[in-house]
Amino acid sequence: MSNPALLLLQDLTGGTELVDWEWLGENFWEDILPALQGHIFLSSISVAIALIIALPVGILSARYRKAYPPVTFVTGILYSIPSLALFAILISIPGVAIGPSPVIIALVAYSLLILIRNTVAGLDSVPPETKDAARGMGLTDRQILFRVELPLALPIIVAGIRIATVTIIGIATIGAYINGGGLGTLIFDGIQRQFPTMIIAGAVLATAMAIVADLLLLALERYLRPWARVRRT
């Protein structure tokens, strides 16, 4: 404790140490790991559900251009509603109980704009000549979609999944307020008990999870784009 910065921290926190390592060790299996698992569950299931909705909607919007502006308008409005407000609105609906379900619904809603937008952008990025060539080779519309357009659009779609995942991991922490579980439980409990160790544990793990997800999906994006392996920047 000779480090002046650490002493200052101690002072600011009223004499208690900022990180209580003993507590972390004692509560790892009981509190921290389940919170992390809950967070991974919430985020991954939400992105998966969002993809199931966004891919067909994106493909249809790319085909029927008139449908695209209303789709982005509605999902854009959903996207700009602050998460705590969206949670509050959802649990006010009769039949929606507090817990993970309203949190997942909200997280899906937040992912839609990013995922649909990137699906459309990905499909738009396929050169018309490539599609013409495929058609010339005798491929049907459906074959062109699944064998030519989607594989070529995939890197941009994965880029969207990446942004959506990082966003969702952050927002999912707030879901703990309506009993959604996850790392937010540590943060809220830490605030309640005025115990910085819990806040820091939740914050650090959520940030680390976002960064790891970001890097993994970036690697996937690069892998799916072999023709652009040569680094540009």
Partner: peptide, 19 residues
Amino acid sequence: GNIGRAVPSLAILALALPF
């Protein structure tokens, strides 16, 4: 900026508390 984006907003607000 990118690392800043990865930190959840709730975490930043909660972290302001002890300081």
